[in-house]
Write a protein that binds this DNA or RNA. Sequence first.
DNA 1: TCCAATGTAAAACGATCATTTTACATTGGC
DNA 2: GCCAATGTAAAATGATCGTTTTACATTGGA
Lengths: 175, 175
Amino acid sequence: MDIDTNLLATAERLFDQDGFHATGMGRLVEESGLSSRTVYKHVGSKNALMARVLAARGDRFFAHADFTSTRALFDSVALWARREGARGCLFFRLRAETGGAVPEIEAAVAAYHAQLHARLAALVRQETGAADPTLTDQLLALFEGATTAATYRGPAVIEAAGACAVHLIERGRSS
Amino acid sequence: MDIDTNLLATAERLFDQDGFHATGMGRLVEESGLSSRTVYKHVGSKNALMARVLAARGDRFFAHADFTSTRALFDSVALWARREGARGCLFFRLRAETGGAVPEIEAAVAAYHAQLHARLAALVRQETGAADPTLTDQLLALFEGATTAATYRGPAVIEAAGACAVHLIERGRSS
DNA sequence: TCCAATGTAAAACGATCATTTTACATTGGC
DNA sequence: GCCAATGTAAAATGATCGTTTTACATTGGA
């Protein structure tokens, strides 16, 4: 595996499991099997690394998530949570850890939020035939809430939220 | 104002605005106008302080939130967000910052989640006449999601989620 | 009045951490 | 065959931070 890919994957795993502050660069050096010099030559800084981790995470998530229908979306999210564990949205968590003070991370989070909202808006348009900002916000809330609540109630919450979302969409279609 | 009350309130404000790690104890010493010796005599440690902040936060939130009806609940949450700002659930954020490694904080978060879930379950029972775990999870997801999404979409999301919740409850009542 | 509690002011401690530097080894392309 | 790039190993740097300690002032009640 490529060094950069290896570093990105290791960092994502550590940040996701233990958090940004709890994961020191020394830990990344150990687990990657590289020297600290090489690590820094590749990632630049911890902040830059985290921004790249978030970008990669977003790409991976949007590649996995199935936005062809509301049901497919929540099913794919439930599958993701079961495979990767439900520890809450990594974007939100890492943002909380840095208190909004790191511009690179704010940018990565904003990009993710923009894409998430746009995809949900498109899903609403596709399923109901018209744009509906309120319905989009409701799907967004269900999505975010399912992700968050699943951290302490388990992945079943995602299915419950999905059923709610499907019902909402069906209701929006007939209007 | 009492020293303890003052410290708790100042700490909650700082932790909420800037985060746990970004807020050093020196900052709390400055803003409280006390000496570090006195601060530590009162709060014990930063971890213990944070656990007490969370307990107080929970008390304050449940004293403010109106669980008499679904509509009243989301309206009161929207009002809270407008008054205090929407930076996401403090329990979730502080938990993310500590990576689950601080027992005192895990306990405070678990207590909050248990109470939140119990109150929502009771609300469902009261409004529909019967317990409904799935409906309770859906309300929970809408609540958590509204809180989270409001951080980047504004408090309007909370109203949209509230409308969705009210609709869900009405549908549950007629079944 | 006196003492014990409680406070201030400020330096010191000890640990952690991100990051850099020094010295040296390996290696692949011209 | 050589050199420039790229890697390792490990110590050093410099800053931050939670927490403690030292020395001293204030004060309220028995």
